[in-house]
C-alpha cells in the first residue's frame, strides 16, 4: 500500500495478466451484484446503498489523490459540497437538466481544486495537506453566511427524477451505480492516459518528468484538479440521491469519513475496493448508532490498524517467508 502498484514503468506483463483477469472478474461481479440488488432489498436499504455508492465516488477522489500525488486531503468535503451546490443552484435557478448540471458541477469543482492548489505548486506537499484542514472546516460557515444564495440551514431541493414513470428510489439507485461505474472506470483507466503517465513519472522520476515539461508542482496541480473533479462529480450525484443539499452533509467530519473510507479500501480505484471502503464508513455508524463516542475510536483504530498492518506487518511477513524459502533452496 505504501508503494501503490501504479508506476510509470511498464509492468511485468506475464505476472500482471493473471492478476488482471481476476480483478476484472471481481469488478464485473460487483457491478452485476449491485445491479441486481434492488430485487431483494427494501426501500430503506435501497436508499442507504444509493448513498453508499454516491459516497464511494467521493472516497475514490481521496484515494486518487493519495495514489497519484501522495498528498493527504482532509478538505474534500469542500469539493463534494461544490459539486452538490452547483447542481442544486443550476436546477433551482436557470433550470438546467440533470446531465448538464453534472457536467458543469464537475468542471466547476476541477477549477476550484486547481485554484486552491495553485499557491502551493512550488512547495512541499505538507503545506497543501495542512491548508486542506482549513478548507474542510470552512464549508459550513461559508454556506451559512451566504444563506440567501445557499438556502441556509434548510439547504436546497434537488430534483430526483430524470425520467417519468420509474420510482424515484430506483432512479436514484441506478444513477448512483452508473456514476460510480463511470468514476471508477475513469480513475482506473487514468493510469494509462497521457496525463496519468506524466503524473506518475513526475512522482517516480521527477527530473525525467521535468525534462518533458511536467514538474512535480504541475503534476500535483493536475492530480489535485482531477481529484477535485471526481469529488465534485460525486457531490452532484450525492445531491441527486439525497434529493436535497444542506450544510449538515458537508461538515469537516465528512472529510475524515472519506479519508477513513479511502484507507480502508486500500486506496483502491477498483469498484469492489471502493464499495468496501464506502460500506465501512456508512454501515459502521448505522450499526453503532447507540454508541456515538465509539465511532471516533473505531475510525481511528481502522486508520491506524489498516495502515500499520499493510505497511509494517505484511511486509515483515513477506520478508520472513521469502527468507525461509531462500534458506530451503
Amino acid at each position: 500500500m505504501s508503494e501503490p502498484s501504479t508506476t510509470a514503468l511498464p509492468a511485468d506483463r506475464t505476472r500482471r495478466s493473471a492478476v488482471r483477469i481476476d480483478d476484472r472478474m471481481l469488478s464485473i461481479g460487483t457491478v452485476l451484484l449491485l445491479g441486481l440488488l434492488p430485487i431483494w432489498i427494501g426501500s430503506f436499504w435501497l436508499y442507504s446503498i444509493s448513498l453508499l455508492l454516491a459516497q464511494g465516488i467521493a472516497i475514490l477522489s481521496v484515494s486518487f489523490l493519495i495514489r497519484y500525488s501522495g498528498e493527504v486531503s482532509i478538505g474534500h468535503n469542500f469539493f463534494v459540497a461544490t459539486g452538490a451546490y452547483t447542481i442544486a443552484l443550476l436546477q433551482n435557478g436557470p433550470n438546467v437538466p440533470f446531465l448538464g448540471g453534472v457536467v458543469v458541477a464537475t468542471a466547476v469543482s476541477a477549477a476550484v481544486g486547481l485554484l486552491f492548489a495553485w499557491p502551493s505548486r512550488t512547495l512541499s506537499g505538507v503545506y497543501l495537506s495542512v491548508v486542506t484542514l482549513a478548507l474542510g472546516l470552512c464549508v459550513p460557515e461559508v454556506l451559512l453566511y451566504w444563506s440567501e444564495v445557499t438556502g441556509g440551514f434548510e439547504g436546497l431541493f434537488v430534483e430526483s427524477r430524470i425520467v417519468g414513470g420509474v420510482a424515484s428510489g430506483l432512479q436514484q439507485y441506478y444513477v448512483a451505480l452508473a456514476a460510480l461505474c463511470i468514476a471508477t472506470f475513469v480513475a482506473h483507466r487514468f493510469r494509462g492516459s497521457r496525463l496519468g503517465l506524466m503524473i506518475l513519472t513526475a512522482r517516480d522520476h521527477p527530473h525525467a518528468a521535468a525534462a518533458f515539461g511536467m514538474t512535480s508542482g504541475s503534476a500535483r496541480l493536475s492530480a489535485f484538479a482531477v481529484s477535485a473533479a471526481i469529488a465534485g462529480f460525486g457531490g452532484s450525484i450525492l445531491g441527486f440521491t439525497t434529493s436535497m443539499v444542506s450544510p449538515n452533509s458537508f461538515i469537516f467530519w465528512n472529510s475524515v469519513t472519506l479519508l477513513v473510507g479511502a484507507v480502508v479500501s486500500l486506496y483502491s480505484t477498483r469498484i469492489y475496493g471502493v464499495v468496501v471502503g464506502a460500506a465501512f464508513v456508512t454501515l459502521v455508524p448505522q450499526l453503532l448508532s447507540n454508541y456515538g463516542q465509539f465511532i471516533l475510536i473505531i475510525y481511528g483504530l481502522a486508520l491506524l490498524g489498516v495502515i500499520i498492518v499493510f505497511n509494517v506487518t505484511v511486509p515483515a511477513i513477506v520478508r520472513r517467508v521469502r527468507r525461509r524459502r531462500n534458506h530451503r533452496v
Binding site: M1, S2, I66, G70, E71, V72, I74, G125, V126, S129, V256, L259, V263, G292, Q293, F294, I295, L296, I297, I298, Y299, G300, L301, A302, L303, L304, G305, I307, I308, N311, V312
Partner: peptide, 28 residues
C-alpha cells in the same frame, strides 16, 4: 517510527487515526 521510514504520508494518516482515538477517548 516504522511508517516514517517508508513514507511520510502514511505516517501523517496514522497520526490522524491517533487523533481520532484521542478525541474518542475524551468523549468516552
Amino acid at each position: 517510527a516504522e511508517l516514517l521510514q517508508r513514507a511520510a504520508t502514511t505516517a501523517t494518516i496514522a497520526t490522524l487515526g491517533i487523533g481520532l482515538i484521542a478525541q474518542g477517548m475524551i468523549l468516552w
